[in-house]
Structures are given as C-alpha cells and as structure tokens.
Design a protein around this nucleic acid. Structure first.
Length: 577
DNA sequence: CACCCCCCTG
DNA sequence: CAGGGGGGTG
C-alpha cells in the first residue's frame, strides 16, 4: 500500500558511513537498527568500531614510542601539519554525520604526533591528505627496508611486498558466495587480513636496527612492532579514507591492511592467523563476511567494467541477470523473468524482435567499460596509482584532455551550501538509475555538501518525484506501443541499451552519458515495462489507481548506490559548471 | 499535523 | 522542473 514506507526513515543511522547504501532496497532497511542482517552491525568494521579509535592505551604507548623513535635511526619524519579538522561540522543533523566521519578516521600519525590522534578530523578534502599519504608512503617503505633486511629469509619467503599487495582474506575465505561484481565492492574497505600483524611479525623476528644500544633490545622489539604497526595503520587510515569514495572495484586494493590496534578484534583473523588464499580473490569475498565487517552490502554496478564482458551473451543462454547483475539490484525477479530467456527476444528500437530472428543484444550497445583493474597493486606503492584509480569506471573519462585526475579526486574540501545547484540536480538524476524512491536520509547521506533543511529536502524529494513521473510515463508509453505493435507476451519486452525506451530515459537522466547506466536499471525498467504491459493488457488501466500496484513493485527495487556517489564532488565534471 | 506520493498544470 | 491540490499514512 505504501510504497513509501521506508521513506519515513527512523533515526539517523549510526553506521551511516559503512552501511549507507540504499536504505530502500529491501535488503538494507535501517541498518542502524533492525537490519535484516544482524551481522552487518558487528563492530568488526574497522570503519565503525569506535573502540579502536578510543584506545587511549595505544595512544599512550605511541606517545612513548615516539620519543624513543625519534632518537632512533628509523626516525620517521614528523609529518605534522595535517592535524586539526579542516572543517567543522555545521549544525545539527550534519554534525552527527560529521562525528561519524571523524570516528572513522583512523589514527594517522601515530608515532609521530601523539596528541594529534583526535585531531584527525582532517577531511578528505584536505590537500594535506595527499601530502601525508606521500610521507607515510615513504615511511612505510623505509621501515620495510629495514625489516626486509633484518628478516630477509622470512620476508622473502613471503614476500613482504607481496604480502601487502595480496589481498588477504584470512578468515573470509570459506564460503565463497556467488561470484560476481558485487564481490568487488567492499573489498577495498574490508580489512579482514592480519596484514599488518604479519608485517609486524616479520619485523619481530628480525634483529634490531644497527644503530641501537644493545641494552634496549627488549624495548626495541616492542618499538619496532609499534612503529611498524602504527605506520601501517596510519597509511591504512589514509587509504581507507581515500577509498571510502572509491568505486568498489579496485579489487586488489583490498588492502587487507589490518589495524593492529584492533587487537581486541583479532579474532577476526582465522585461527591460524593468516591462511590466505588466492590473493586475487577479493572478488570471492563472501558477502557474509563483508557484512560482518560492517561493510555495506551495497555494491555498485561500478564494478561492472570488471565483468562487463558478459556482453555479448549468447542468445539462447541465460545471461544470468541476477548473478551477473550487481547484487545491489535485489529485486525479486518474477518467475516469468527467471525462467527467462529474456534475451531470446527483445524489444528494441520500439520494434519487436522475435527470438527466432533476433540474435542478441549488440555488444556495442553497452557503453564501453573503462578498464581499471590493476590486479597487482601492492599497498606501499599503490598510492601512486591510487589517484588514477579513484575515478569511477563508469564515469566517462575518455575525454583525453582530462587527465587532471589529481584535481578531480574526492579530495576537494566540502563546502556546505544552502541551495541546490545544477550539479546536484545532475547527480540526483544519475542516482535515479539506482534509486527511484530515495529516502530523505539517503539523500542526506549522498549529498554531504548540501545543508539540508525542510525545504531542500522537499525539493530534492520532488526532483525524484518528477523523475519518476517521467520514467513511468515513458515506460507506460512504450508498453502501450508494444501492445499496439502486436506484442502479446510480456516476456518479449526487454530493455537493452539500444532500446528506444532506454534512449529516452538515458537522454533524460544521463544526457551527457556521464555514467554507465547500471544493468540493474535496465532490468528494472524492463520489469516496469512488462508490468505496465500486463496491466494494460488486462485492462486494468480503467481503474483510476491502476498504476499503484506497479509503483509499489518498483518502489521495492531500489538498488544500493555506489559509494562514490557520496563524494560531494561526484561526478567531478558536473560540478564545474 | 507532518510528511510523502501522485497528478495536473504552467 | 516547480506549485499546488488531493489523498494516504502515522
């Protein structure tokens, strides 16, 4: 009855950061409270666990370590500047999110700036982030050199660098849950590995740095471990923040860098502490595990490029729309679609194609997926590539000139503003591909640079209402046209990228082709088309409220929106005008 | 009453 | 796309 039920969001979701993703999608209601996935709330998420941050003990240790470390040859350079929030949270509602944000900010300069642990409020936007990242990188490298030398045999056996680059999945390895693009996501945020721990171990067994007094051996052990872990942690934190705005696909970067601090959560590593599997298998991360880590199940069709080669699909073959389609398109597929053969016929160019005469979707119909898959990025050196990876694959970037990637990163500081600008409108339109019925809370989460108030919220809600209107009108129109064209079987109606309907919609919401429309949108549109078709065929359109049932169905099919959309400056280009 | 949705209109 | 009315829900 009330396709709007979930609109009435409850209190702000605590795990907003990690859980965000389509609050409307049937599978992700209110994570804050009654999430259907209890484990989704486990504190295991390095992002959401307040404990590890509040670990004063560790901080104190770091403080001590710092002074000592300074005297050591391995003295990490004091990259100081970056502390202090670049921006303070505005008023009320936002404040909440801000705080969460801060919580998710890991300690960044552990050993170097004991007092700054709480000042990490530095926004992604701060240019200092990059600076820090760079410094941290160097530090880490430096440390690694020492360690590697010290613990050569072992380090080599494992390959220190390799260790870092290999996406560990210890503890997350067992049940491989569906392969699919949806697995990629989260990986970048999933810190399940005992990575750091391992590194530390290696270092542990090594001899002490040459320049140290022999009397401090015991202390040295501790120090080394601390330093390593802290630095790793710092780097981790930076990456984490950077990655927060990444599309989920950078599989490798599943920097399994684990916060050593989270000793309390070490249980996460499987017994045996580190049986990792295929290093390249973040994709096979069991969703369940991701969720345990507090990671949103949300995915993104942004991962599409990875599996996009699924087009072309052989005609007779079921294209596995469900598995292949992002898991964030949790729509319950009507049986008639499942049995599917969806592609054995399709509605294209407003003209019906019979399965017999029609082969299949034209490959070129899908927007060229951008590659972005650098299978082997080792953490310490990843930073260099990071920037180039930050861009959502779905955001067209072929405009060669635009190599100014560095300027386009989610690094720009957020400038909260009162009103909505054309950029917001455009972003909203792109979001429509994922969600037709966004809740106000979802909107707030995805427009961090907007100062929401009743008015603004209403306006944005109104936008989506208008979007829907257009969507439904178009869909209905094509459904009727199909009928008048003699189509009798709804199964014949499939929306492809070269379908007239799709073109019309894409023209409306994605005029500049800024986004590679997620398949789930096509599927949902197809479903909508069929629903209209059936309804009209059945003569239900005589009922004044005959569309309501359709609306209700569609309202349940919202998908999770890729994290990248949370970036206040996504998609970049759109905000420069 | 508040909020949201849909519809219609400009 | 914005306004405004009507209607449903809580």
């Amino acid at each position: 009855m009330e396709p709007t039920e979930s609109v009435a969001e409850g209190p702000v979701c605590y795990l907003a950061e990690p859980c965000m993703a389509g609050e409307r999608s049937p599978s992700s209601q209110e994570l804050g409270g009654d999430s259907p996935f209890p484990w989704a709330q486990l504190p295991s998420s390095s992002l959401a666990d307040p404990d590890w941050l509040g670990d004063e003990h560790i901080r104190a240790k770091k403080a001590r370590v710092e002074t000592i470390v300074r005297g050591m040859c391995v003295s990490p350079n004091p990259l100081v500047p970056g502390n202090g929030q670049t921006r303070n949270s505005p008023c009320c509602p936002e404040k909440f999110r801000e705080r969460k944000r801060k919580q998710s900010l890991p300690i960044q300069q552990g050993p170097l700036r004991p007092g700054s642990a709480q000042d990490q409020g530095m926004r992604m936007g701060s240019p200092r982030v990059k600076e820090q990242l760079h410094l941290l990188k160097q530090q880490l490298r430096h440390l690694q050199e020492h360690i590697v030398q010290a613990a050569k045999p072992r380090a080599q056996a494992r390959g220190l660098g390799g260790t870092l680059s290999a996406p560990q999945k210890n503890g997350c390895s067992s049940s491989s849950w569906a392969a699919g693009s949806d697995q990629h996501q989260g990986s970048n945020k999933y810190f399940c590995g005992a990575e750091t721990r391992k590194v530390a171990d290696d270092g542990h067994q090594s001899e002490k740095p040459r320049c140290l007094p022999s009397t401090a051996q015991a202390l040295l052990e501790i120090l080394r471990k601390e330093v390593i872990s802290v630095v790793a942690q710092a780097v981790d934190s930076v990456f984490q923040r950077v990655l927060m705005d990444l599309p989920d696909n950078l599989p490798q970067q599943s920097i399994s860098f684990h916060r050593p601090v989270a000793e309390s959560r070490s249980e996460h590593s499987p017994p045996g502490g580190g049986d990792y599997k295929d290093p390249l298998a973040p994709a096979s991360f069991p969703r369940r595990v991701q969720a345990q880590a507090g990671i949103p199940l949300e995915n993104s069709s942004l991962t599409k490029p990875l599996d996009s080669p699924k087009y072309p699909i052989s005609p007779g073959k079921v294209p596995k729309p469900y598995q292949g389609s992002p898991a964030n398109c949790p729509f319950t597929v009507p049986s008639y679609i499942q049995e599917n053969q969806v592609y054995n016929g399709y509605w294209s160019h407003g003209r019906l194609q019979d399965s017999s005469s029609q082969s299949l979707p034209s490959p070129e119909s899908s927007l060229r997926p951008l590659v972005l898959n650098q299978p082997h990025l080792s953490l310490p050196f990843m930073a260099a590539h990071l920037e180039s990876q930050l861009l959502p694959p779905s955001v067209k970037r072929e405009q060669s000139g635009r190599q100014a990637v560095t300027d386009v990163l989610p690094f720009s500081s957020i400038h909260i503003q009162e009103g909505l600008n054309p950029g917001h409108l455009k972003k909203a339109k792109l979001m429509f591909f994922y969600t037709r019925y966004p809740s106000s809370n979802l909107l707030k989460a995805y427009f961090p640079d907007v100062q929401f108030n009743r008015c603004i919220t209403s306006q944005m809600i109104k936008w989506f209402s208008n979007f829907r209107e257009f969507y439904y009108i178009q869909t209905e129109k094509f459904a009727r046209q199909a009928i008048s064209d003699g189509v009798t079987n709804p199964k014949m109606l499939v929306v492809l990228r070269d379908s007239e309907l799709f073109r019309a919609l894409n023209m409306h919401y994605n005029k500049g082709n800024d986004l590679e429309v997620p398949d789930c949108f096509l599927e949902i549109t197809g479903l909508t088309l069929q629903e209209f078709f059936r309804a009209v065929i059945a003569g239900k359109d005589s009922d004044p409220s005959w569309k309501k049932p359709i609306y209700k169905i569609i309202s349940k099919l919202d998908s999770d929106i890729p994290e990248i959309f949370k970036s206040p400056s996504y998609p970049q280009e759109l905000f420069q005008n």
